[in-house]
Design a protein around this nucleic acid. Structure first.
Length: 497
RNA sequence: CGGGGCGUGGCGCAGUCCGGUAGCGCGUCUGGUUUGGGACCAGAAGGUCCCGGGUUCGAAUCCCGGCGCCCCGACCA
């Protein structure tokens, strides 16, 4: 048997490997517009499954979906000081509403019609806080209108200097939740509730273990009081911020005059939260699980969970094998399994194996004449392991295997993360760890932004989160790992995407 | 915006140093034989060599200018 060829034999580094996986799995492609991404059916299928699952969770916790405009008056963005500071450098602007034909062709064919210049330019939303809170101001009058719990699925545009497929594209798809509450405690509860949902979603659906916690001042969202995040560790030992939930305090309420009358008759500003996850999650999924043969997709998010590959020699065998294959397809589909029968006769079975492996399909069922005679199919798991499976009750068997694969992926990812984590390091160990290996380093932190900046300067590592109790070290250091001053909290450090 | 690399059929590349008929592999199409880990044979289609200028009898190749993409930094989901 020929040695299996890896899809990325020439990949020199992780980035190259990452791009190869995306291309080979047909998840996405570059678009004619720099930094924008075309999401292909295989990648979009994953996104749709994510949307469905997360949308269910968001609604189950009392939120409703709504939709707000793509365009935001430029002045809206400027109403909250930190917010405008954070986004001004990366917004796309609409300044005209018409083009004028010049009579030429090519690049000079059209020019913005000066007659159509907008009095006030519109920004293409980089996030929707401003336009949503402008509407909240209209909708909220009384404490009886609170809490207001909304979510929207949409696209946003951020003109980043440098882009990376899925991780940072000029335009990306996301879900952004926006809520208004009567008091700080309720807003805080909401921000925490969503963080928990994100964590559950990441672990149960993406099979991507995350640590939760709060961001430092320097890493928080522009305009927030506090930012909470889920942070995952990729196979190259770099961290990925996979979702954020912000307690916005009353910053936006004050900027947009979102007030309500209390039961006692007083006028109070509301407390807001906002939270989101993006198509970046697909990048996280890829970098958490895949290997040199291509994508490894957790079964619950696999657009195709099972591929049936028939094998035959004669026409007679072909007819028999295909008949069984179709039956198998019907049975699995009936059992709620996303299954494809690859009946192409111009491609040999081996070629099909590689193709579906690169696309991340978790389980392959091979059926040939020998299997028909034995009343079985050969089940091959993505990532290794082949075993004959009886055709009797195969749908149940398959569902069980998909569950096992899902669980195994999470366990493997968690084991990798823990193997790449160190606790209670000295300054010197920390420097060497970040230089030679990378990963999550837990250590005491004085809370001083200057200390944080110095660490970033010297090691390229940033505070990912000040972890929640569950993730803290049993014996957290009492002093700052860097400067030795008293520690205000344990911090998780890593080099990050 | 700095540093590095690269632009040649759909994809991946050679050819560039040293100017002389534009090539290879994969893919595609046709026909046939094949089909338990990337099939084989025969035939065929497919190219403004990133763009503009210059040098030259002659430019993918040399010179000048531009554009674009990828990677590494800074900014960020």
């Amino acid at each position: 048997m020929a040695q299996a060829q890896r899809i990325t034999p020439r990949a020199k580094d992780f980035s190259e490997w990452y791009n190869d996986v995306i291309m080979q799995a047909e998840l996405a492609d570059y678009s004619p517009v720099r930094g924008c991404m075309v999401i292909r059916p295989n990648g979009y299928g994953i996104w749709e499954l994510m949307q469905r699952a997360l949308d269910d969770m968001i609604k189950a916790s009392g939120h409703q979906n709504a939709y707000f405009p793509l365009f935001i008056p430029q002045s809206f963005l400027a109403k909250e000081a930190e917010h405008v500071e954070g986004f001004a450098k990366e917004v796309a602007l609409v300044t005209h509403t018409r083009l004028k034909a010049t009579g030429k062709t090519g690049a000079a064919a059209v020019t913005p019609d000066p007659e159509s210049a907008l009095e006030e330019p519109l920004v293409v939303r980089p996030t929707s806080e401003t336009i949503i809170y402008a509407m909240f101001a209209k909708w909220i009058q009384s404490y009886r209108d609170l809490p207001l719990l909304l979510n929207q699925w949409c696209n946003v545009v951020r003109w980043e200097r440098r882009t990376r497929l899925f991780l940072r594209t000029t335009e990306f798809l996301w879900q952004e939740g926006h809520t208004a509450h009567a008091d700080e405690a309720d807003a805080e509860r909401e921000a925490r509730l969503i963080l928990g949902i994100y964590r559950t979603f990441a672990e149960e659906w993406l099979a991507m273990p995350v640590i939760t916690g709060v961001k430092t001042e320097s890493e928080k969202f522009a305009g927030a009081l506090r930012t909470y995040a889920i942070e995952a560790l990729m196979q190259d030992r770099k961290a990925l911020q996979a979702g954020t939930s912000h307690n916005l305090g009353q910053n936006f309420a004050k900027a947009f005059e979102v007030r309500y009358q209390t039961a006692a008759g007083d006028q109070e500003y509301v407390w807001n939260t906002s939270w989101g996850v993006t198509t970046r999650l697909i990048g996280g999924l890829i970098m958490t699980h895949s290997d040199d043969f291509g994508l490894i997709c957790p079964p619950r998010l696999a657009p195709v969970q099972v591929v049936v590959v028939p094998i035959w020699k004669s026409d007679e065998e072909r007819a028999q094998v295909l008949a069984t294959g179709e039956q198998l397809h019907t049975d699995l589909q009936g059992a709620g399994v996303r299954v494809t029968l690859d009946a192409r006769d111009s491609v040999k079975p081996g070629a099909k194996y590689f193709e579906w492996e690169a696309r991340g399909v978790p389980l392959r069922l091979e059926i040939g004449p020998k299997d028909l005679a034995a009343g079985q199919a050969v089940g091959a798991r993505r990532g290794g392991g082949k075993a004959p499976l009886s055709l009797n009750g195969i749908a149940t068997t398959v569902k069980g295997m998909l569950d096992e694969i899902q669980a195994a992926l999470l366990a493997a990812a968690r084991a990798r993360r823990e193997a790449a984590s160190i606790r209670g390091v000295s300054k010197q160990q920390f420097i060497e760890f970040m230089r030679d290996q990378g990963g999550f380093a837990y250590g005491g932190f004085c809370g001083d932004a200057a200390c944080e900046a110095a660490i970033k300067e010297e090691t390229a590592a940033t505070v990912r989160v000040l972890p929640d109790p569950e993730f803290r070290s049993p014996e957290a250091s009492k002093t700052c790992m860097w400067c030795g001053k008293p520690s205000i909290a344990e911090a998780v450090w890593a080099q990050a995407y």
